[in-house]
Amino acid sequence: MSRTTNRDTPSRPHQETPATSSVPVPAVAQAGPVSHAIFRVARLHRMIAGQLLRPLGLHLGQELVMMHLWELGPQRQTDLVRLLDSDAATMTRSIKRLENAGFVRRRPSPDDKRATIIEPTVASQALRREVERIWAELEGASTDDLTPDQQAEALHTLQRIEDSLARAATRSPDVTPAPTADADTTTD
């Protein structure tokens, strides 16, 4: 009779199992267990987000562009680059895809002929409800096994990690600073 291991059976939600990962931890990464855990969590989070967004015709990150447009209203493309800590080429591709799908409209800035204004369309409002639903589903997938206190502590810890990484990024000579609001980042 063969013995069944955890790897042989699918994991079940809310089941107490030992911490395992589908990504083996190389010996070199033993010096950075938190960094490796962040890598694994981010990889899984992006994978699930991509799966949830795909039926809407959205690529990862496009929902964040739309969230900022819905929240803030029309924005210069340059400002979206800065808000999302993106680069001009990636943002241009995202905006073109969103425009082709009918979710945003581009127009020249009335104040600066070099700038492009991006605005959400009326058609994007139905998308907004779906993105909100998907975001809630993603949050549930991420935190359903945590108590409200554990969720608050995780959020606090992640904020401290982000702050620490942001400080390290500003000290690193290899990090390219984000474009300023005055920089022309459109490549239309």
Rank of each mutant, 00 (worst) to 15 (best):
R133Y: 07
S124P: 04
V25W: 07
G102Y: 13
R160F: 01
H68P: 00
V104Y: 12
P24T: 03
L69I: 08
S86C: 09
H36M: 13
L60K: 05
G57Y: 02
T157I: 07
D145M: 08
P110I: 09
E137L: 13
A29I: 02
R107T: 12
K96R: 15
I134Q: 08
P74N: 06
R105M: 12
L138K: 07
S21W: 01
T147Q: 01
K113R: 13
V28T: 07
L52E: 10
E99V: 05
V34T: 11
F39E: 04
E99Y: 12
R97Y: 10
G140T: 09
E63H: 14
Q150R: 05
T20V: 05
V25N: 02
Q77R: 15
E63K: 04
E63V: 03
E162P: 01
R40L: 06
I38K: 07
E153P: 00
M66Q: 10
S164W: 06
E137Q: 15
P24Y: 06
L158N: 02
A123I: 01
A37W: 12
D163E: 12
G32Q: 11
A136I: 01
H156W: 07
Q151L: 02
Q125N: 08
R128L: 07
T90F: 03
P24R: 13
T78Q: 15
L146A: 00
E99T: 11
I161C: 05
H156L: 04
G61I: 03
H36D: 05
R93F: 04
A31R: 14
G73L: 10
I134E: 10
I48G: 03
S22E: 08
L44V: 05
T143W: 04
S124E: 06
V131M: 14
R82N: 11
